[in-house]
Design a protein around this nucleic acid. Sequence first.
DNA 1: GTATGTTTCAAACAGGTGTTTGAATTTATG
DNA 2: CATAAATTCAAACACCTGTTTGAAACATAC
Lengths: 258, 258
Amino acid sequence: MHTSINKSSIIKGSFKKRAGTKELILNAAEELFAERGFVETSLRMITAKADVNLASVNYHYGSKKSLIQAVFNRYLSDFYRIVGDNLQSLENRKEPPAIEEVLKLIIDPLIELDNIKVDGTVAFMRLLSRAYSETQGHLRRFLMVNYGDIMDRFYRLLYTALPGHSQYEVFWRLHFSMGAAIFTFAGNQALTEISQSDFEQSVTVRSISTQLIPFLAAGLKASGFSPDSGNKSSGNQNNVNQNNSTQENLTATTLKNP
Amino acid sequence: MHTSINKSSIIKGSFKKRAGTKELILNAAEELFAERGFVETSLRMITAKADVNLASVNYHYGSKKSLIQAVFNRYLSDFYRIVGDNLQSLENRKEPPAIEEVLKLIIDPLIELDNIKVDGTVAFMRLLSRAYSETQGHLRRFLMVNYGDIMDRFYRLLYTALPGHSQYEVFWRLHFSMGAAIFTFAGNQALTEISQSDFEQSVTVRSISTQLIPFLAAGLKASGFSPDSGNKSSGNQNNVNQNNSTQENLTATTLKNP
DNA sequence: GTATGTTTCAAACAGGTGTTTGAATTTATG
DNA sequence: CATAAATTCAAACACCTGTTTGAAACATAC
């Protein structure tokens, strides 16, 4: 099956090896990990899909665990570079940003992923989802160590955009929002299929985002305690605001130490 | 290690086998599945924890797949029985219920799980989360076939509680809400630990729910398109209401066919 | 062209997986 | 008690896992 013809291809006018075994592995792994998860994807599936030898994974990446991190690194470096730029532009402003702006700051790059790769958004969110649920979290730790600062800045910006809310509230609402986004995008196309067949409307990453943003914005802005209809009346029990510790320390421990 | 003393115990005055091998397996499996997921939990781990023979799993349950479904069935039968009762009481009312009522309808039983079993809520949500992300979804299909009608009724009730919103909107917002809830509760205690250390406030299932309900309620109620501050002004692009098909058919296909 | 370093390859490795088997044991029945 | 059914048990089954090995093929440089 594996001929020797594809061993070489013309790249930029000069002969090179066939598109890099290392990248072939990374591409195949990325797809399979998003589809099936890390534990349910074997190295033999990856090497078969990439049409390379089994041993080349350990030769180029050392171990399966390192391969997983490499897949993540490629996605995140692309994604968080854009988010970082967007963050700075809002951080530099004097007046606090609107929540919708803060949300778009991170959702727009998420949508952009779909233009770079086929089903890029869904694949990325599935990887994120699995990173959070699979194993006991060595991957979540990897995420926090390498990219926790970005999330830290995002949390601070969100806090400034929500005056009148405690950091405790913002903390939880941030994770509610992450859950809604990750769960929805990562949801194995089942939701999309149902929606398409029932509502006769093509479902894209952008159309879901159009639904998601007002939902999250309203949730984030909501008054803390609403027994009836959202009025901030009466006594609220669990509204213990404690902004005594410095914001420096607070956000640092909040998101840097998993 | 395994003595023959615990082979018999007194139950209801008469001698019986030691608390049922079948139940011992189910208990051990339930804990391990919630902790580590289905694929990462081996039958040998389960039988070791339950202190029973390896072969007894296949003897009592036939296969690992059936064991997983059995674990789910025990949780869901308890949970959905209560939810079913709550649903009916609201369905019988003339005037549409408040969203907070609809949310409490399903969140209160969720909290109650914590009183029945230790960390019952978290365990249940983790099982749900894994059911949605793991494998290609044979477990999600099982859920929908056996318990889809309850979710169908919940969706309809939510729709009546949200006048002025299209079924398309309600559909997506329902799944946003599910994502927020499942992701948060299932989040491997990491969130809870962070919150406890940073905000010096004990985090319980109930205190999270107190945060979650107003967040979800506000998101569900939000006007469809809010570029600035949640006012339902200006033109909205993706608000294609199509209530042409009968509600009967719509909700049926929505949640019964996975 | 020979030598050197890099990459590929088939094969084997040690260990874990769910499942099956058949005998031994326990429990229930007549 | 004896017989029959239900359950437990240790061992083995066939298969899949990530990783290692050592020789073969390749690339590049002298």
